[in-house]
C-alpha cells in the first residue's frame, strides 16, 4: 500500500517534471502579471512574441543541428553577417529589399554548406569548425561594414509593425510559419525521421541505409539559413546593426533549445512545444525583469539563474525517469 503510494508519487513527480519548462513559463508569466498587471495586456504579450520570433527561429535551426548530435556556435556571427550585408546591399548597391533578403539567405546557405563540407569531407569536429567560423564571420562582417553601424531603410523597419489579419505582427507570423513547417518536416517526412535516426546513432543509421552525410549537410544548411532569416527579422525590429550585434545569441539559442528538452547528445528534442516554450520562457523572464524595473545589470544574472534552475530540474527528471524505469525483477513488486 505504502509502496503503491510512493510509486504513484514519483510517477506524479515525473509528470510534473516532464512539463517543467511549460510550468515555469506559466508560473513566471503569472507572477509577473500579478506584480504588474500591465504584463497581461495584449501590447506586452505581442511584444514578447515579437521579440521571441527572431531568437526562436534561430533556436529552431539550432535544434535541428543538436538533434543530430552536432552544434553550431556560429549563428550569432551569421546573424550579424546576414543583417549587415543585406543592409549594405540595400543602402550602397540599391538592391530592392526582397533581393537583399534573398541574398542574405543565400549567404546563410553558403556558410551552412561550408560547415557541412568541413564536417563531412574534412571530418572536423563541429564544435571547432563553428567556433572558428564564429570568429571568422564576425571579422568578415566588420570588414564589410568597416565597423560602422549599418542602418536599414525605414521601409524595412516598418515591416515589423505590419499586421496580418489585423493583429499578428509580421515577425510572429513568419515565426509561426517556420514552426509549422519544421514541425511537419521533423514529424512527418522521411527527412525528419532520418534526422532523429542519425542523431540516435549515425553508424546505425548508415547501416540501415540512410545517407547520413546528406542529413548532416541538410541540418547545417538549414540552421545557417534560419540564422540568416533570424538576423533579418531582428533587424526589422531594431532598424540598425551595431558592431556588437549577434554576440552571445548562439548561447541564447542553445539555451532555448535545451530548455525545450533537446538533448545535447542528439536524437531527442522537438520544435513544438519544446523549443517554442524554451524561447518564450527566456523572453518572458527578460521582459518581466524590464517591467519590474530590476537593475539592468541584475537582469542577466536572474535570467542565467532561471536557466540553471530549468536545466537542473530537467536533469532531476532524467534521473528520476531512469530510477522508475529500472525494471523490477522480484515477484513481490508486481
Amino acid at each position: 500500500m505504502n509502496n503503491n503510494n510512493k510509486a504513484n508519487m514519483s510517477a506524479f513527480a515525473l509528470k510534473l517534471l516532464k512539463n517543467i519548462p511549460l510550468l515555469l513559463f506559466i508560473l513566471v508569466f503569472v507572477v509577473f502579471g500579478l506584480i504588474t498587471p500591465v504584463f497581461f495586456e495584449w501590447d506586452n504579450i505581442e511584444n514578447i512574441l515579437t521579440s521571441s520570433s527572431y531568437i526562436g527561429i534561430v533556436a529552431i535551426g539550432m535544434t535541428l543541428v543538436l538533434l543530430t548530435g552536432g552544434i553550431d556556435l556560429s549563428v550569432g556571427s551569421l546573424m550579424f553577417l546576414s543583417a549587415s550585408s543585406a543592409g549594405l546591399l540595400i543602402r550602397n548597391f540599391g538592391f530592392p529589399i526582397w533581393l537583399a533578403i534573398v541574398s542574405a539567405i543565400v549567404i546563410g546557405l553558403l556558410v551552412g554548406a561550408f560547415h557541412a563540407f568541413c564536417i563531412n569531407k574534412l571530418k572536423l569536429v563541429p564544435f571547432i569548425v563553428t567556433l572558428s567560423t564564429l570568429v571568422a564571420l564576425k571579422g568578415l562582417t566588420l570588414m564589410l561594414t568597416k565597423s560602422v553601424a549599418v542602418e536599414w531603410p525605414s521601409a524595412i523597419t516598418g515591416m515589423a509593425s505590419r499586421r496580418l489579419l489585423g493583429f499578428i505582427p509580421l515577425p510572429v507570423f513568419i515565426f509561426i510559419v517556420i514552426i509549422i513547417l519544421v514541425q511537419l518536416m521533423l514529424k512527418s517526412t522521411p527527412l525528419g525521421r532520418h534526422i532523429y535516426a542519425v542523431g540516435y546513432n549515425s553508424e546505425v543509421a548508415a547501416k540501415a541505409g540512410i545517407d547520413h552525410i546528406k542529413i548532416i549537410a541538410v541540418v547545417y544548411i538549414l540552421c545557417s539559413v534560419l540564422a540568416a532569416i533570424g538576423g533579418i527579422i531582428s533587424v526589422t525590429q531594431l532598424g540598425i546593426v551595431n558592431a556588437g550585434y549577434g554576440e552571445g545569441e548562439e548561447f541564447k539559442a542553445i539555451a532555448a533549445a535545451v530548455l525545450g528538452g533537446t538533448s545535447l547528445s542528439g536524437g531527442v528534442g522537438s520544435v513544438f512545444p519544446g523549443v517554442v516554450i524554451g524561447t518564450l520562457l527566456i523572453q518572458v523572464v527578460q521582459a518581466g525583469l524590464v517591467y519590474l524595473q530590476v537593475d539592468i545589470y541584475m537582469q542577466p544574472i536572474i535570467t542565467a539563474g532561471i536557466i540553471l534552475l530549468a536545466i537542473l530540474l530537467d536533469s532531476l527528471r532524467t534521473m528520476l525517469e531512469k530510477r522508475l524505469e529500472r525494471r523490477n525483477i522480484t515477484k513481490s513488486c508486481e
Binding site: 572536423l124 572558428s132 564576425k138 571579422g139
Partner: peptide, 21 residues
C-alpha cells in the same frame, strides 16, 4: 585591421585542425 585578424584566425584554425585529421 583587427577584423581581418579575426577572419584569418578562424580560417587558419580550420586548416590546422584539418591537417591534424
Amino acid at each position: 585591421p583587427f577584423y581581418v585578424v579575426d577572419m584569418a584566425k578562424g580560417i587558419v584554425i580550420i586548416i590546422a585542425v584539418a591537417f591534424d585529421v
